[in-house]
């Protein structure tokens, strides 16, 4: 089980800020594929991965990163702080 967190328009498209996901995905990219196959709202949120950023356990990562040992994966658009 992995906690998936969504922020900004990713959260709005998926419709929830976080959820527990039962998965055996080995990488972030595999997890994304599983989510995309679930429902159109996930497909809409993950339509263009170049528009998304990912963090594993609150550290920026990339889509090829392994999920082994991960507790929390967050998906969000490029950050606009400052």
């Amino acid at each position: 089980m992995i906690d998936c967190l969504y922020f900004a328009w990713v959260r709005e498209r998926i419709g929830v800020p976080r959820e527990r996901v039962e998965t055996s995905a080995a990488t972030v990219a595999e997890l994304v594929e599983e989510l995309r196959a679930r429902e159109p709202r996930y497909a809409a949120a993950f339509e263009d991965l170049s528009a998304l950023r990912v963090a594993i356990d609150q550290e920026l990562a990339d889509f090829a990163a392994p999920l082994e040992g991960a507790r929390e994966v967050a998906f969000f658009p490029p950050m606009t702080g400052g």
């Binding site: 920026l60 967050a74 658009p77 490029p78 950050m79 606009t80 702080g81 400052g82």
Partner: peptide
């Protein structure tokens, strides 16, 4: 400032009277 802008996880949304839009990086 440079790092806070694009490496700290904040997202800005501009709220209008009838519309709202996320600020793009």
């Amino acid at each position: 400032m440079d790092y806070l802008k694009s490496r700290a996880p904040f997202w800005k949304k501009e709220i209008g009277p009838e519309d709202a839009a996320w600020v793009e990086a």
